[in-house]
Each structure stands twice: as structure tokens, then as C-alpha cells.
Design a protein around this nucleic acid. Sequence first.
DNA 1: ATGTAAGCGAGACGGTACGTCACGTCTTCAC
DNA 2: GTGAAGACGTGACGTACCGTCTCGCTTACAT
Lengths: 193, 193, 193, 193
Amino acid sequence: MLRVELTDAIVEVVIDELAEKGYARTSMDGVARRAEVGKSSLYRRWSSKQDMVADAVSQLSVPLVDIPDSGSLRGDIERAFEMVAQWLSDERLGRILPDLTAEAKRNPALAKALTEHLENPRRAKAEPVLDRAIARGELPPDVDRELALDIFAAPIYWRYTVRRTEITPEFLATLTDSTLAFLGARPAKKRRR
Amino acid sequence: MLRVELTDAIVEVVIDELAEKGYARTSMDGVARRAEVGKSSLYRRWSSKQDMVADAVSQLSVPLVDIPDSGSLRGDIERAFEMVAQWLSDERLGRILPDLTAEAKRNPALAKALTEHLENPRRAKAEPVLDRAIARGELPPDVDRELALDIFAAPIYWRYTVRRTEITPEFLATLTDSTLAFLGARPAKKRRR
Amino acid sequence: MLRVELTDAIVEVVIDELAEKGYARTSMDGVARRAEVGKSSLYRRWSSKQDMVADAVSQLSVPLVDIPDSGSLRGDIERAFEMVAQWLSDERLGRILPDLTAEAKRNPALAKALTEHLENPRRAKAEPVLDRAIARGELPPDVDRELALDIFAAPIYWRYTVRRTEITPEFLATLTDSTLAFLGARPAKKRRR
Amino acid sequence: MLRVELTDAIVEVVIDELAEKGYARTSMDGVARRAEVGKSSLYRRWSSKQDMVADAVSQLSVPLVDIPDSGSLRGDIERAFEMVAQWLSDERLGRILPDLTAEAKRNPALAKALTEHLENPRRAKAEPVLDRAIARGELPPDVDRELALDIFAAPIYWRYTVRRTEITPEFLATLTDSTLAFLGARPAKKRRR
DNA sequence: ATGTAAGCGAGACGGTACGTCACGTCTTCAC
DNA sequence: GTGAAGACGTGACGTACCGTCTCGCTTACAT
């Protein structure tokens, strides 16, 4: 019977607070104050700060779009990289993802939320890239999909988040070449359609 | 003239506390208590918890060993991967690295400490792998060293820390093949020695 | 058109809660829960906790019995003292009377309820003692009835409730003697009947 | 090592809050706010609200003065009654005494504080009245001192605090007569001095 | 007989206070 | 003057009630 619009409003505030202050400095009192809500309304919904944040993350409307068929694996990968780069540098998500990643090491609920609501959707968006490449004959049908989906994100995350380095177009260009090789890509076999 | 041996003792305690409890639950009071030291002795040395941790990290004796020449790039990479995997699952370092990475986004001092004392040494240890491969003719002399050094760590970090997945020998085996392709490796040109 | 039987059931619960937990730890939520009633049913009847308690007290069936004619003022006083002592050490009333007394200082409704439903009935029960004593010639007809009715309760309340001391038979015996003097009692003039 | 002047300032605030709001509505947060002090400073000194109040009561500088020798028991009693009446109608003490009395039923620490710091001093002030009366021959040497000390306070407390009635000079006059009888007072045996 | 009012239980709501913990600052005292 | 000890103000934690309020559901009277 919890008022849904109130829940949504609170979640919005949680995400804003997380983005502005990070996980540690986001407080229940602060969220309640900013949402103009009693603390009881928070604890009626979630049993702890960790719970609340995990739930808020679940509802983070990730700015994920489908990767359009560019006609080649190379083109598709370029688009996929751009998506990840934008994702990580996003105002809201980018600022909290490292915090959440760290916190998830201790908090299974948060870990689950992150996997299901952030990583899985991202992977789902990238799957068609592999399908199309296999159909084109650019990738072998038995390509290691797990590894392929990892490699679309890992190097960019590493550079941007762990090493705190700029993501330049040159980097992405070189990365694209190497990633094609990583995947064992071949030229498209023949005209499809 | 702060007593150096006291500073060292405190740093030891900080590292232990971080490893045991993580960044967030490490407290100044706790460190002072465990080091049998007044809090003033902490704040005389560092201006905040973040500062103190950054400094402690600088003095983290990273368990990095030289990568011995295995005779082939493949062998060297396998050893390099093992090193990274051990590093991340290390009792002390592995438990706090995600915390520190997140914190570093807001704390330049910590960012600098991480880069200089963790990432740079790691890269330095991996450089000879590239040198040897070039000498063997397995890698072109103009290989993108930055990218190569990234790719030794990024996929493993992604799997282990971000996706919270087991690092299996099978994964490392497949990863090795793909990484060789990623780097554009060729068979060694001629018999060495 | 509030359901009367519901009101009565709630009042019962209020009295029980008061007796078990005292005024401060009696909560509206607790009463509602125990009476299996919505909180609205409470606030529909009373505007606050204080109001509710005041009303409950009004309906407290005080265990007051008539003081039988013992044939002498001394005997009647002894019975009256016993009655007060039992009253104050009563399971239900005794535990809350100090609370209510304190609360009544700020709450006129409660004050009125206490006076009308507790003190006045008690005085009414003691009046015949005076009447009989006057008839017997033990007390002058113009005895200060107000003061006399006070003195039947005041010393015992003081000892038991304010000073938190045991009420012993010895105390009551001495008190009886002194009280007879206090009232200016004389031996009975003659045989009545 | 607690700062004594801070403790004193807090105690002052506690007493003021008690007098203004009563026990129940006196809050730790409120005291901290008014004393411009952190809550931790409260809990460093006392383990709970009950503790704090008990201690504050201990330090209540009771406006007790010695009862001067009026030359007769009657005069001394009149003065003693006035003292009690002023005590109970005192701005600070009178407003909280009923609260504290009620609370003390559940709180032994508070009970002890009340006995030692309020009731015992009051009794000590009244003792000389008895001594002098015995010396004058107005009271027998074996008078029941306990009961005598009770009767100096009980009727007035009952009227003023329990029955919430005005204390009038007429009442006190009548009470004085009856109290002399209660005590079994006789005329002074002989000229003193 | 059916509409409409009201009582009802349930419990969400914005608040305030509880007692605990950690932060970073400041003060005291011993050496 | 360094250091141990720890008090200080601040503010977050998660819990418990307060008194208000909004829901559907039931009951009962008036049409």
C-alpha cells in the first residue's frame, strides 16, 4: 500500500544524492530531508541504506540504446564502444558506478542489483552485434560470447574508471583494430541479403 | 619531528584495518586504538582519513615479482595474468582496491598514490614482457605499449572485480589466445639462443 | 454513532496497558494492536493519548467498598486506612496513580476525571465514618470534614507513594492513635441504638 | 576529565527543561540543542535520560532554609508548613516533583536521588523543631519522629499536588491546630531561659 | 432495494526522540 | 614539544511512537 509516486520520488532523490555525493556521504537523513519525507517512509520501504541504494540502482534508467546494424562488425564495435564510453561518463551513472562496485563486494543485494539491472542489460544490447557478425561470417559460430561481451567493456572501464584517463578517439580507433583481432574476426564472407 | 617509527607502525595498522574491514569501516578511532596511539598523532601526520589511507597505500609493499623470461610471449603472458589474478585476490590489496578506486574519483591525492604506487609498478613489471617479445620478433617494434599494458590487466579486473566472477584456468587459457591476437603477435622469427 | 461495545473494549485494554506498563510506555499503537482495532477508532473517540487515558480512568471500577460500622471511630478509621492502603498497592490503580497525578498537573481533563472518579468516590465512602462518629459523640458536629477526609489518605499516600516506604501494621496502629487526636476525638458519649 | 563547567551548564538546562515541559517532554535532543552541546556530551556523562534527570535532581539547590526557633512548637510548625508550601509551589521544583515521583516508581536511581537530595534534607531541616519541642517539654522525648516528620509534609502535599487545591492561610491555621494534637503536644513545661 | 453515509481495520504519512557510533577538532597532562 | 588520552560539536544510523491521513469494506438507515 506504499504510495508508488512517493517511492519513485524518493528513488529519484537517492540517485541524485548518490551522483552528487557518492555512496558513503549519501545519508538516509539527507535523502529524507531532500525528498521532504519522514525517515519512516524510507525504512518502511527499505530495511537499510544499502537496500535502498540497491533498489534505486535497479531503477536507474540506463541510457542504453540498441546498436544499429552498421553493416560490419567493425562499425558495430565502434558504436558499442561509444555506448560504453558514454555510459561511464554519464552524469549520474558514471559517478556512482565505482562506489557501487566497491560496495557490492560486501553487499550481495547490491551485487545482484548491479548484475541484473546494469551489466545484464548492457550485455543484452551487445549480443546482436555478435549474432550479426556470425551471420556475416565475420565471426566463427562458436566464438566465446562471454569473453566477447567482456571485451566490449573491460578496456574502456579500465582506462576511464580505474586508471582515470581520458578516452580519446585515437584510443578507441586503435582499440577497435585490436578488438577485431581479439575476436578472431575475418572479412565478411559474402553479400548477405 | 614526528617519530618515523611511529608513523610506520601506524601505517602498518592502517593497512591491516583496511584489509580486514574495507575502507568505509576503517575508522580513525579504531586505528588509534589498535596502534595504541592518540588520535592527535594521526591528525598530526595526515589531515583526514582519506589522506592517511592514500599514504598508507603508497607504502603498500605490493607483492610484485619480476616476470621471468619463459622463452615465448605466450608463456610470459600466462605468467603476467597469474600475477594480476593473484594481485586482485590478495588478502590485503584485493579487498580494498575497489574502495580505493571509487574514492580516488573524488580524491586526487589518493588517485596519485594509486597510480604511482600500484599501477605504475605493475606496468613496469610488464614492460620487459613486451621488450622480449619485440626482440623475439613476436611483436612489432611499434606495438602500442600503453594499450598492451592495459590489456594485461583489464579483462581480469573486469571479470573478478566488476562482474564478481571466478577466474578459472579455462578463462585464462582462452584469454591468452585472444590476447596474443589482440597484440598482433606472430611466431618468433628465429631461434633465440 | 460510535459502537459502544467497541469503546468499552478499548477502555479495558487501555486500563490493562496502563497497569502493565505505566502511562509513559502505554502507546496508542500498542492499544490499537492489543484491542485489534485501527488507530482511527482511537482518535475518533479521543483527541489524544491523554484524553483517552483520562476517560479510561473515569471508568476505572475502583475497588471501593463501604466501610462497615465497627461500633467505634477507632475501628472505622482502621478499616478506612486499610482501604486506602489496598487502593494504593492495587495492581491496576496503584501503578498508574502517580503517573496520572503528575500528568493531571498539565491536563485539566485528566485532573477532572481523577477528582470526580477517584477522589470524590473515596471521600463519599469515608463520609459515613464521620457521620457515625458525630452521632456517637466521638467527634464534634462542626468537625472540619474536608480536613478529616484528607487525613484519612494523606499520610499513607505520602509514605507509600512519595517516600516509597512499606506500609506496616505498626505504622497504621500508631497512625490511628495520632489521627484520633488530630480529629479531636472523644470517647463515645453513650450507648446509641 | 569531563569539563565540570559544561556539566553544570547542562544540569541547569535540564532543570529548566523539566520545569517547563515536564519529564516526558524533556528530550535529550532538546537539552543538547538548548545547551549548545553535542548529544555525545550528554551520553558521555549519563547513560540515559533517566540517569541524567536523576543527577540533575541531585543538584537541585533546594530552597531550604533553617527553621528559626519561634519560641513555641506552634510557631515552629507554622514556619515549617510555610516552607513546604513554598517548596511545592516553587517555579522549578514544584512543577517537576510529581513527574519525578511517578518516574521514581520505575527508576531506582531517580528514587534514590529524590530521597537523598530532596526528602532527607527536608527532614533534616525539620528535626530541630522536634528537638526544641522536646526540650521545651511540649513533646514527649519518645515521640515518633518518623511520623512527625511525615505529618509536616503529607497533608500539604496531598492538598496541593494530589488534589490540586489552593493552600489557604485558613487551611494552614486549622492544620496547625490538628497537627499539634496529632503530635500529642502539651503546653511548655516551664520558662525556658 | 438501493444509495449514501459513517464506522471500521489497516497502515502509510511527516515528524521527533531515542541511544550509538564515527568524524575531525581541541585541550590537558606526562615525559 | 611530542605524544597519549580523550572530551568536544556534529551529524548519521536504525527504531519506536506520535497524531494525521487515506484507503476499501461493512453496516444501517432513508429513500
